[in-house]
Design a protein around this nucleic acid. Structure first.
Lengths: 189, 189
DNA sequence: GTCTATATTTTGATAGAC
DNA sequence: GTCTATCAAAATATAGAC
């Protein structure tokens, strides 16, 4: 295990506070207090509050982009690709639930990196949609509403950060399998 | 149609701004500007910023509670009750998408009404969970993970506010039917 | 690397004229 | 019912001592 730098500690604690109250409602004094120091001292490690948000969101967004690119490059059925997307979300949400809150709820407060973030997000959704459409064409997936399927699946996967920390007994592999079953096959007998 | 009072107009415009940036990031000056007036003038119609948030969230939370109680009192199968829950979310989200954003993302900034809101929310989830469990017991619903089903369905239903405004061509009845199909029967062939 | 002190801006809200 | 003027508190951030 690499030692956590002071900056990394600040970003980690900030993500926790941002999850609880949102970026705008957390002051630098709140963050300093949670770190056991004065607000001014934070600035020896970070340039600005905005920098912290950027650090949290962009690193995760790039993880999703990297994961999606690997799934797209793989030689599997579309249903299997969906399964891997679910695993990608479960893995990232398990490892950084607090950061996922900022990515989901505070991305609009990004300044310099807003356009870049929106581009990554847009591309991710386009790739997800393409897999669903290909699955319908190849008769793996039923129905003719890929847009609503995309919305429904993404809503569940993007909310994992809220739910995973409350169910720490469930391991990621098992959760992925159950989610795959529910999202792909539904709940009806 | 009843004439909209000035106060109702302020609450409606505030909900729109809260959806875009969150409660904490919207100042009374922002709101006044969107209303075409000065911040001080707002206070002739509302008591505080907090009052606006309370107005938005509690009214919707009570709509959900009322809807759920009617569904519980009805004499239908559990699968049919789930269908009515989906319709309830689609209806409310269609009629007040902006308010749903505050309910989902800014409830933690409630002050006096926080405990009351959490109670309504908790009861709603308990009732939802009970329907899923009853459905499993009566063999209408497959699987043994009602908690994950609840999480998945609620995630999709609570995110509708983000998605409905972008698809104005789709009517609520049709959307409910499609969502019912996807959430109950899945997407796989 | 943390502190105190402080500059500057912005915030929610009130008083009182019109 | 809206305005101008204003208050007190809180915000982000910097300077400089230790």
């Amino acid at each position: 295990m690499k030692q956590e730098t002071r900056k990394e500690e600040i970003v980690r604690v900030a993500a926790k506070l941002f999850k609880e109250k949102g970026y705008s409602a957390v002051s630098m004094r709140d963050l300093a207090s949670a770190m056991g120091m004065r607000a001014a001292s934070l600035y020896n490690h970070i340039n600005s509050k905005q920098d912290i948000l950027k650090e949290i969101i962009i690193s995760i967004a790039e993880l999703f982009t990297k994961g999606m690119n690997e799934i797209l490059a793989s030689d599997r059925s579309n249903i299997e690709k969906l399964k891997h997307i679910i695993e990608l979300h479960v893995t990232i949400s398990s490892q950084n639930a607090n950061g996922m809150a900022s990515l989901n709820n505070d991305w609009m407060h990004l300044e310099d990196q807003l356009v870049y973030y929106m581009e990554l997000r847009h591309n991710y959704e386009d790739n997800f949609r393409a897999i669903l459409k290909n699955g319908i064409e190849s008769n793996e997936i039923r129905g003719s509403k890929p847009e609503i399927m995309l919305f429904s699946m993404l809503s569940t996967l993007r909310s994992l950060y809220l739910w995973i920390p409350k169910k720490e007994d469930l391991n990621p592999k098992e959760l992925s399998a159950t989610l795959n079953e529910i999202l792909i096959n539904g709940i009806s007998k």
